[in-house]
Amino acid sequence: MNQAVFGHFTYADVMIDAAGKLRDSGYDVTIFSPVPLVHEIEHSFGEKRNYIKYFTAVGALGGFFFGITLAFSTAALYVLPRSGREIFAIPPTLLISYETAILGGVLFTFAGFMLLSRLPSFKKRTWLSEIDGDSFGLLVEDDSGTRLAAIERTLKEYGASEVRRVEED
């Protein structure tokens, strides 16, 4: 369990400013929000690398080759001449592999999202229920537990409506 301070904010921009200040001071900060603040955070903290695309690409390519392999290998396993048509026909195989590529891409994107977001998460954050109305939250962790008072002061300086000490897994 890490010692941490949790601050409630009414305004997103103020919270992001506070998060920036504390982050620059070397603290580990986590922003909690009822809406996505991706653009605002990236604007302040810079853009991070997007790893989801690798999952999507692997899923789509895997799905594509799975579709081709499935169609061709089953045709090879049971050779059935159908009124002079090709046994290994490209256009219909491409149709099948197009669909399997989409399916693979979608499934791997979801898997990538879960993995990168570290979900499912079993952390018990009972204090979270309070921020899910109109306010935003900022969690600042302090491993040593010695600078909690300084963190509280900073959060209050930035206009946190409520500040409290919590324990984070």
């Binding site: 986590t30 996505p36 989801i52 999202f113 977001s117």
Partner: peptide, 20 residues
């Protein structure tokens, strides 16, 4: 699944939505 609305979760959610 334990979603708590962190900046990291929203970020990956947004990126994944685009690919989805």
């Amino acid at each position: 699944v334990g979603w708590s609305g962190t900046d990291s979760e929203w970020r990956w959610h947004g990126k994944a939505t685009m690919f989805f």
